[in-house]
Design a binder for these strands. Structure first.
Length: 792
DNA sequence: GAGTTTGAAACT
DNA sequence: CAGTTTCAAACTC
């Protein structure tokens, strides 16, 4: 494919169509067309516009679904287009026509990429717009990845933790399939949310069936990375991806270096610089750097030679960034869903793993496991959610809110992660990474070294990472009794990703089980009996989840929605409820006065709202009547109450939490990347309930994420600040989204969900309230980063 | 560690 | 939709 096609890439689509090559390609396997379509979509700015829709969640899903169907019907000629493809196309919406046109191009591009090494060049050649676009995406991704912690951390020995979502997914997908397919899968995964169960099946089948070797085929790691990125971003076209792959790599490399040298500032500066210089020049510079930095090239690109083994490592290296970016988009979904789904995928891959290098799989698994473990904590919260993140469920939220002791959380996450065998890396990824960030930061230096090593020596890093946490793990193991667990949770941050349940009759397949509710698998530390919430019973878990979600679409959604302070200020309810965040459904406390953890609001560190049906509410975070103290007041109250109650934990922990939240916008805003991701992610999971909320994350799911960012020290996260702004705004959005989707009658979620009653109040408030509007505006603004890319 | 309390989740 | 039961966490001793 070295032929003229490359040159053509940059040329207008029309030319492609006319070109014989185009026709030839069309005649070729249908598969390519699909991918191409996918890619094309990514290019089209409209696609980005579609992203927002994704944010909307439930009702959005419905839209997408309808669209998908339409597309599918429209493209009967292309049997190859599975529902998945259709979905993809649909997501692009307005793009439809363009997609078809680009379709061919994309195919060509793919061929070129496949051919090999030339990718980057080819991608570069394309017109400035595309290239810029591609570049921007990577940047955005970086931002998303955002939290410096996450990025660096992954690189660090802790990779397991960091790698998480992106790696997990990428690793799984990549390992199992090819980068190209990974893209498809990612899109599918997104879609799955949107699409219905049927689609899920397809997705799974694809994963399982997917060529194991695509990765190997990929000329270099960059492609795999690209794939990941693309997956995350769908909108990117292949050549764009190629550009991204190069640029991102460079950037990433630089970032890593910067981080290593000066973890704190370097990251941000770079990101800023990149942002400031979106132009081609920057790209060229980056490219030049890559070329000039043999080491980097070796790390990222060099893989091609030794490939399989190194790929994993490299992928891990890359993935964090790409994955993060992706995660940002998909975080919400991934947290939980990823945990479960991904696990399944991974299993399949493992099962099939025999073909590809076992070593790679094992490594990826380890990484994933680590991530999962981290995630487990959560939150899912993201990162997965993730633990995603801490995923996003209560855990995630709690994590976000309670990010009490980052260190503690980290320990738990890590320990739990290691101990537990969590397959779901994706969901947890987000959250986990975040949660771990602090910890990672502490390890930063070591990690940085590891990264470098890692890039060079794939396997070693992983082992190191595993080892590093080991000591922590031991601690956790020592504490198995419920009380100990409790203490752990309390100290570590209750919510943190590692939730440990003690279920005896529910088999951990009901929302009674915190682990299950958080979208994470139970792990060793759990004292549950007859536990089915394990990867082994993935099918059962998924089925149960679906069932529960069918009853209540929001069942796995984060229970606590946090609004930014600004929003609260603006918001109508917010005025009433000082708390920055609100419990999704509201509590129903009657005896605890909302002063104990029996109260979900209190547990989540949020004030009670109108939606609460509690009696005698004295929630320190904010009373139902709105008298609740805001900010300092709340803290004071808490402290006083804590003193009264002699709840030492409360005094120590909660105040911190509040402080964290308020002080750190990111923290305050559950929105951390995870949440943002959530919105971005197609809640559509509806079909795949799994993905839907998980936020992880939280962090849902990806709960861990929140904490990480919040907790994350500025130094590491510095690069993040900008993101935080976006996120902050986003968080607001998130609430609205959740609420919207659920609340708005149109969404239908409400109707379906038993909780709709409870939910509705807050929703209505948000919807009507100006605050909410502001939230949207913010969202739009915040989102721009993505759109900006599209604009080109 | 055992027992009690509590409120969400699940069921009818 | 309301009421009841089940469940597991939170809490107390």
């Amino acid at each position: 494919m070295d032929t003229p096609e490359r040159n053509q890439i940059g040329t207008p689509i029309s030319k492609f169509e006319d070109s014989p090559v185009f026709n030839y390609i069309n005649s070729l396997s249908p598969i390519k067309p699909v991918k191409s379509i996918h890619i094309t979509q990514t290019f089209n700015p409209l696609n980005f516009s579609s992203l927002p829709s994704v944010f909307t969640s439930p009702h959005v899903n419905s839209h997408k679904e309808s669209r998908l169907k339409r597309h599918n019907c429209s493209d009967p000629s292309k049997p190859e287009f599975s529902s998945e493809n259709g979905n993809k196309v649909c997501t692009n919406e307005g793009i439809g026509v363009d997609a078809t046109q680009l379709y061919d191009n994309s195919a060509e591009l793919q061929d070129n990429f496949d051919s090999g090494v030339s990718d980057g060049e080819a991608s570069v050649e394309p017109s400035g717009e595309h290239s810029k676009f591609a570049i921007e995406l990577p940047r955005t991704l970086k931002y998303d990845c955002g939290s410096p912690v996450c990025d660096p951390a992954p690189c660090c020995g802790t990779e397991a933790g960091c790698m998480p979502a992106s790696l997990v997914q990428c690793g799984q997908e990549v390992s199992a399939k090819g980068s190209s397919e990974c893209e498809v899968h990612l899109s599918e995964m997104r879609r799955t949310d949107q699409t219905k169960e049927g689609l899920e099946c397809d997705w799974e089948s694809l994963i399982s069936d997917g060529p194991d070797i695509l990765i190997f085929n990929s000329p270099n790691d960059s492609e795999a990375f690209k794939g990941l990125i693309q997956k995350s971003v769908e909108p990117l076209t292949r050549f764009c991806s190629s550009l991204m792959s190069q640029l991102p790599q460079n950037e990433f490399n630089d970032v890593h270096k910067m981080q290593i040298v000066d973890p704190v500032d370097s990251g941000e500066l770079e990101t800023e610089d990149l942002l400031a210089k979106p132009g081609e020049a920057s790209e060229l510079e980056e490219i030049d750097q890559l070329q000039n930095n043999p080491a980097d090239t070796v790390l990222y690109k060099g893989m091609s030679s030794n490939a399989s083994e190194k790929l994993d490592n490299e992928v891990g290296m890359y993935m964090p960034h790409g994955s993060k970016a992706i995660t940002i988009l998909h975080r919400g979904m991934r947290r939980r869903c990823l945990d479960f789904e991904m696990v399944g995928a991974r299993r399949k891959n493992l099962g099939d793993g025999s073909n590809s290098s076992s070593s790679m799989l094992s490594q990826s698994d380890e990484n994933i496991a680590c991530h999962d473990k981290q995630l487990v904590p959560f939150k899912p919260g993201g990162d997965s959610s993730q633990c995603i993140l801490p995923g996003i469920g209560l855990h995630l939220n709690a994590l976000a809110t309670t990010s009490k002791d980052y260190k503690n959380v980290k320990h738990e996450d890590l320990s739990s992660g290691r101990q537990s065998y969590l397959p779901s890396s994706t969901a947890s990824l987000h959250s986990p990474s975040n949660s771990q960030e602090p910890f990672l930061q502490s390890l930063a230096t070591a990690s940085s070294e590891r990264e470098t090593d890692h890039g060079e020596n794939g396997a070693a890093p992983v082992e190191d990472a595993s080892q590093a946490p080991a000591y922590q793990v031991s601690d956790d193991f020592n504490q198995n009794s419920p009380k100990k667990k409790r203490r752990r949770l309390e100290h570590a941050g209750e919510s943190d990703a590692c939730k440990r349940c003690n279920c005896k009759k529910s088999k951990c397949l009901k929302l009674y089980c915190e682990c299950f509710a958080a979208g994470v698998y139970c792990i060793e530390p759990c004292s549950c009996q007859d536990c089915f919430n394990k990867p082994i019973h993935e099918d059962t878990v998924l089925a149960t989840r679906k069932q529960i979600e069918s009853r209540n679409p929001l069942a796995f959604a984060p229970k606590v929605i946090r609004n930014s302070d600004s929003v609260t200020e603006i918001g109508d309810e917010s005025s009433k409820t000082p708390a920055s965040a609100r419990h999704k459904r509201g509590c129903n406390c009657k005896k605890s006065n909302c002063l104990k953890k029996y109260c979900e609001c209190y547990q989540g560190g949020v004030g009670c709202s109108i939606g609460c049906r509690c009696e005698g509410c004295k929630n320190a975070f904010g009373r139902k009547d709105g008298s609740a103290p805001i900010g300092t007041e709340a803290e004071l109250e808490e402290e006083t109450e804590a003193c009264e109650n002699s709840a030492v934990d409360k005094v120590l922990q909660k105040p911190e939490i509040q402080n964290n939240e308020e002080q750190n916008p990111a923290c305050a805003l559950p929105m951390t990347p995870l949440r943002i991701s959530r919105p971005m992610v197609p809640l559509p999971f509806s079909s795949n309930v799994k993905l839907s909320r998980a936020s992880f994350i939280t962090m849902g799911s990806s709960s861990g994420l929140y904490t990480s960012q919040k907790l994350g020290k500025p130094s590491i996260l510095r690069s993040v600040p900008k993101f935080e702004k976006h996120f902050q705004t986003v968080p607001e959005d998130e609430m609205p989204e959740i609420l919207r989707g659920n609340c708005t009658p149109s969404t239908g979620v409400k109707s379906s969900s038993p909780n709709s009653k409870r939910v509705s109040p807050p929703q209505s408030d948000f919807g009507a309230s100006p605050s909410r509007r502001s939230g949207r505006k913010l969202i739009l603004q915040s989102i721009p980063s993505f759109p900006s890319l599209t604009q080109h």
